[in-house]
Structure formats: structure tokens, C-alpha cells
């Protein structure tokens, strides 16, 4: 479970100060799929960074599995990220000049998983994203969809309990994007892993259990699955008209 309590994050100082997150609170149950929906500059990325321990808001608490990660020392936060969190980015950030295998192996190396165990985990992660046949290829030779699948394999290799996906389908065409979505939601349901997707795409957001609307650093609304379904239907109808 992730509990975010009254976090505030300000960038810059004095006249230039910009409040990216303003007293934000929310609770995400374990195993849920959550969409953080907002325009660029709304503070959705900052919220993700705060929840994943990449950034430190000056006020508030981020409690994950009973532990306030904002109170941890840098070393402990790094370890927390290495062991419990998986990241997927819009621009993939796969290492083009390294092999697919080495890309997936990276988080395991960082988490100090022994060489023997790594092999099995990498193979399993690649199997899950159907990239087994590309194990030895250089990552730069993969297509966009394959790169994002590789990024997913990298994110799930260390069996994290939370996966953060920042616009995971933003750079992909709709067919490939659908595949990636299926893969993510499938993994989320199958392994009961909390999936937090940061997006400005309402359609992708609509597929999540929980939808957090964020605007100007404040939470506008939090919708649960059933309510949300109705709303999305309404929007889609609107579009059609």
C-alpha cells in the first residue's frame, strides 16, 4: 500500500518559486492499477518521482508498506528503489549499444543479485515480454515496440512490488501501444503488482482501477473504476458527437 500524505514540492526560490505539488494526499491499495492523469506541467511527473523516492518533497510523508521513504537515508532509498520499484519511461531509455540481455541484467546487478540467479531472472523476464529470441541482439536494433517491451522486461526482472510507467505508450503507434498496455495490465493482475501509470491519455487512464486527476499541483479528483467507466463513456460519446 502507498500512502501519500500532504506532500508539497517547490522548485526554485523566492520570486521564481514554482509549486509543483501542493499538499497532495492519496492512498493506493496494493495491486491496484492507477493512472495519474494530467497535462504537462501539472505535477504528475513530480508526484511519480516523489512516490518512487527519486525526489524529496520538502513537506509531507510517502509511506510505502508502512515505511516513510522520505525519512530514509539516500543509501536506503537507493536500495528501496533497486529492490521494490520498476520504472518504464516514455523514451524507453534502453542502452542501445548493449545487448538485450545486459539491459535486463542491469537492475539485477544494481540490486546485487548474484550472477547465477540473474540468468534465470533475465530469461524469465524476456520470456514474459516475448523477446527471448532477441536475447543477444543489440538493443539499438530493436523496433520501438520491442524497445518498450525490453524496458518492461527490465522493470519486472527484479520482481518489484510497484511499477511506475511514465507515458509508456507515448512514443508508440496505437497497435503497438495496445500490446504494451496488455502486457502491463496482464502483469499487474497476474502478479498483484501495483502499477502506476503517468499519462495525459484519458483512454489509457480509463483502463486503470483508479484514476487520479491532477492539475496545477493539486489533485482535482480521484475516481474509482466503476464511476470512471461511466465518465469515460460520457466523454467518448461527446467526442463522437
Amino acid at each position: 500500500m502507498i500512502e501519500v500524505k500532504h506532500i508539497t514540492k517547490t522548485y526554485g526560490k523566492k520570486q521564481n518559486a514554482f509549486v509543483a505539488l501542493d499538499d497532495v494526499s492519496l492512498t493506493i491499495p496494493k495491486g491496484a492499477s492507477v493512472a495519474i492523469l494530467g497535462k504537462s506541467g501539472s505535477g504528475k511527473s513530480t508526484l511519480m518521482h516523489a512516490m518512487s523516492g527519486l525526489d524529496r518533497p520538502e513537506k509531507g510523508e510517502v509511506i510505502i508498506d508502512g515505511q516513510n521513504i522520505l525519512k530514509l537515508k539516500q543509501k536506503a532509498v537507493d536500495r528501496f528503489r533497486a529492490e521494490k520499484i520498476g520504472f518504464i519511461f516514455q523514451s524507453f531509455f534502453v542502452q542501445g549499444n548493449e545487448s538485450v540481455y545486459d539491459n535486463v541484467s542491469l537492475p539485477l546487478e544494481i540490486a546485487r543479485v548474484s550472477r547465477g540467479k540473474r540468468k534465470a531472472r533475465v530469461d524469465e523476464a524476456l520470456r514474459a515480454v516475448e523477446l527471448t529470441d532477441k536475447t543477444k541482439s543489440k538493443a539499438r536494433n530493436l523496433s520501438g515496440g520491442q524497445k518498450q517491451r525490453l524496458a518492461i522486461a527490465r522493470a519486472i526482472a527484479n520482481e518489484p512490488s510497484i511499477i511506475f510507467a511514465d507515458e509508456p505508450t507515448g512514443n508508440l503507434d496505437s497497435v503497438t501501444g495496445d500490446k504494451i498496455e496488455k502486457l502491463l495490465f496482464g502483469y499487474n493482475k497476474q502478479k498483484n503488482v501495483t502499477l502506476i501509470i503517468v499519462t495525459h491519455d484519458p483512454e489509457l487512464a480509463a483502463k486503470c482501477d483508479m484514476l487520479v486527476n491532477i492539475k496545477d499541483g493539486k489533485i482535482e479528483s480521484i475516481e474509482q473504476a466503476d464511476v470512471k467507466a461511466a465518465k469515460v463513456t460520457r466523454r467518448v460519446t461527446k467526442k463522437v458527437q
Binding site: S52, K75, D78, R79, A82, F93, Q95, L106, I110
Partner: peptide, 14 residues
Amino acid sequence: TQQIGLMKALGMRR
């Protein structure tokens, strides 16, 4: 820069 950023995001210590 990006590679280093990624490694740090993945929890690599300074």
C-alpha cells in the same frame, strides 16, 4: 548522462 540517470533511478548508489 542518460545512462547514468537511468542507473541512479534504478537504485545504483552514488
